[in-house]
Write a protein that binds this DNA or RNA. Structure first.
Lengths: 159, 159
DNA sequence: GTCGGTCCTTCACAGCGGCGAAACAATCGT
DNA sequence: ACGATTGTTTCGCCGCTGTGAAGGACCGAC
């Protein structure tokens, strides 16, 4: 719920944050134009009923957008998120598998090592290196692997 | 531009056709609720300016949806996309067939080889060469074949 | 605080293999 | 016969993987 043009800067913030918003436009003022489905506007004065109707629709869309915001990994090593995708090589594919099973939760280095190298870990340092490489690959998708010291790693959306 | 609830059946048609529409809602009537970004509504009476603003936004969204259109391939080897077209020779025609069946998804080199040469693969490098040739043909249409290393290829619109 | 040690990050390098692409030759269709 | 299509060879780049080493961040002990 944003007043326009009074709260222009706040609108900009909400836009970049990708959150749904309803812009309240006073009489005689041109409404802001954007093709973003998460933005709508009403001409004031407006009935509560009309405002509620628009808010409900926006909430529906936001819910849909949120579901589209969890990454998807297919059997070919393609990781999709928000219309974009990256391809993951075999090892990172397996690592990503467990990280996604425990999305936003900590995965121990042991569990990652077992997932990445079912036959046994080649070297002590391999996991770290692959985490770095995975991080770089995930960057364009807006995903981040956080370190939880001495506990493991955690996958989440970039702040 | 649809009147509600007078033209309810016409609205249903346009919805299933997936076209953009603006619903005109008289005073005292509840607006139709849908999360479809290609549908919007205005409360009557409304100023021309407000109506135009909503129409413009809907046109923008419709244009975006149209760009997501998938190319069409006919039995004569003509590949059409966005008013343009190219003709594909037999082998590339068959390759394009499977790539379109799995549009935006990975197609294994095996599957491509089987589609392109049902009688058996002539040489081990033939597929690579034909992918290169196909790529050059698709370029003017704004289509791209991406390589997913050790997994196959993927057809999508150029970024 | 600071010291030592552990955990983690990052880089550089090498082997291997998949893939890209040009050039050439053979074949097909009209 | 001529151009388009198709197959083959060959060369080289680049991606994937693992290893070693150097450095940084963090924690507890003193």
């Amino acid at each position: 719920m944003v007043r326009w043009p009074a709260e222009e800067s706040r609108l900009a913030e909400i836009r970049t944050a990708g959150q749904a918003r309803l812009v309240l436009v006073p009489e005689g003022v041109a409404p802001p134009l954007t093709s973003d489905p998460l933005e709508d506007w009403v001409r004031l004065p407006a009935s509560d009923e009309d405002v509620r109707a628009r808010v409900r629709v926006l909430e529906d869309r936001a819910r849909g957008a949120e579901e589209a915001n969890i990454p998807e990994l297919d059997e070919n090593g393609l990781l999709r998120l928000g219309g974009q995708w990256v391809s993951l090589p075999p090892v990172e594919h397996r690592l990503m598998g467990v990280l996604l099973d425990r999305y936003r939760a900590v995965v121990s280095r042991d569990a990652l090592a077992r997932a990445g190298w079912p036959e046994g870990i080649p070297g002590r340092n391999v996991l770290d290196v692959h985490i770095v490489r995975l991080r770089r690959r995930l960057e364009p998708l807006g995903l981040v692997i956080r370190t939880v010291r001495s506990r493991g790693y955690l996958l989440e959306a970039a702040s």
